[in-house]
Design a protein around this nucleic acid. Structure first.
Lengths: 307, 307
DNA sequence: TTGAAAGCGATACCAA
DNA sequence: TTGGTATCGCTTTCAA
């Protein structure tokens, strides 16, 4: 188009303060140029847990080059209908889902709909048809248990994460399998949410029922923080009386420093974002599953008992 | 419509798994049924600072009855263009903006556009044409300074919040005015972001320049946390050597407990949400400004010095 | 390079 | 109650 015409158009745009109408454009292009990060958790947790901060970082770094707008959908419990509608109605071109709970059934929704989606953390259903990126929670669980056994502990308590989430279940399964292989008991188990508050309650229950434990394997770092708090309150020393190991390596500060397993959340979220971009480009790629490996990070909370 | 016809339609909907097309609907209704919460801050801060968690709570409680979808837009520094485009292009029916910085110029953007918007925290420009809800930061600043003076402190240091935000500026102005009215010096001032990390640096500078101060008025609770950390490191006792007062009352845990001013963030965000709903109903209401009053909450960090 | 016209998928209005 | 039709504002295609 001629330079003069261009200039005239620009002038008109400015004068009329014209802005294109997204709805009209979307109607024909079938694109909204935005994607959703769906977090089915209560606000408090979302804005408190470093896990989500890491997710957001990784995802936005993947999208930085793409001029897609990232839209954060916090789906409070009980509001999943609204979220489902939002996703189904074409507000966004795609979605990344984290912290998925069984009851949300976002997995079946997204498997049925044609909306490109990637889960961070294995969904519980429709595994075959959905894309996801995950850390090897089962393997990490085995590593954690193995390390605790190696420090000479024999009466091992466990505080598992929520059992309506893959991460909660898989880690617990890993612990139990490994302990069983070592001929150790697996009866001292309590369940908690991925929050310190509920972890504190779970630890109380665990210690009340099993005062003899010499180690606690926790379902996450925040759970471990709760466990350490309770142990200290009860006058038990970490690690001399009870060793504690977490999961996630999100940099929580405890005393002594927490032994844990890395959960490469930023890298996973970035991978999820890149995968989503690929799917957006070419919408009939086969569902992909990517798995990261957790590493053991040994710190003071699992030092061998002095006795 | 007849029951039979209704049933036939329902059946067809199910069979074809029909979902209405939002873009087409929006094109004619000129509604998207979603509103944005715009937070122009880096992700880390958004997902770390309890302030935003409180905002989100208040806002979503206001919207709970409305079947509007809340969309969180985190506008990282340097990405404000993308955000501006998003807001201008009719992705959302309205916006609530918090933590607004001068350089974002979202205030002028929103004043010029026809997009219904409510600021939480006074915007710096276009005051007359924009809706906002705020706490009386100036008055709160005066209260804080008055309380410190009343505890017998005379050499008062200040760590102000960011001066590109109304809250940072107004509180500082309140402190200075009150101190001046009491004939006290107002030269010991450093500036910090609303984060503990930058507050630590600011406190170092303040103490290096003015080792004689016997009180620190902080621009927020997180800033006060940083100040208390530094004081402790330097072997100064709080409150015996140096009294510390914060602002926000967000429940940070310090030792001794922090004297502060309440900042009714949840109530403000809820009010902002309700106001936005009103504007959405009737789009030519006059711009409204609502102001909340902060209250002084006296705790241990400003107990009178023993000497 | 430019202009004219068709269509995206809903809503809303009017007439039957 | 029902059916038909104009309309929203843009992209795309086809002709000129």
């Amino acid at each position: 188009m001629s330079a003069a015409a261009q200039a005239a158009v620009d002038k008109a745009i400015a004068e009329l303060s014209y802005t294109p109408n997204r709805a009209a454009r979307s109607l024909v292009t079938r694109r909204t140029d935005s994607i959703a990060l769906v977090i089915p958790e209560p606000d408090e947790r979302v804005l408190t847990d470093p896990f989500f901060s890491a997710t957001l970082n990784g995802l936005s770094s993947a999208l930085a080059s793409s001029d897609l707008q990232l839209v954060l959908i916090i789906a409070r419990p009980g509001e999943s209908d609204r979220t489902r509608r939002y996703l189904r109605n074409g507000h966004v071109d795609g979605a990344v889902v984290v912290s998925h709970h069984e009851a949300d059934r976002l997995d079946t929704l997204l498997a049925e709909s044609r909306l490109p989606a990637v889960f961070v953390g294995r969904p519980l259903n429709e595994i075959g048809r959905l894309n996801y990126v995950d850390v090897d929670n089962y393997g990490g669980g085995r590593l954690a248990a193995e390390h605790i056994v190696a420090t000479g502990r024999t009466r091992i308590g466990m505080i598992a994460g929520p059992q309506d989430m893959a991460a909660g279940r898989d880690r617990l399964r890993g612990w139990k399998d490994m302990l069983t292989e070592h001929g150790l008991a697996t009866d001292a188990v309590e369940t908690s949410d991925f929050t310190t508050v509920t972890a504190i309650e779970a630890t109380q229950r665990l210690l009340d029922k099993h005062p003899d434990i010499d180690a606690i394997i926790a379902g996450s770092d925040l759970i471990a923080v709760g466990a350490i708090n309770v142990l200290r309150e009860r006058g038990l020393s970490v690690p001399d009386d009870v060793a504690v190991i977490g999961f996630d390596n999100l940099g929580v500060s405890t005393s002594p420093a927490l032994t844990t397993l890395t959960n490469p959340v930023v890298a996973m979220a970035r991978t999820a974002g890149q995968l989503l971009l690929e799917i957006l480009e070419d919408d009939d790629v086969e569902p992909q599953h990517k798995q990261f490996s957790p590493d053991l990070v040994v710190r003071g909370s699992t030092a061998p008992a002095k006795g």
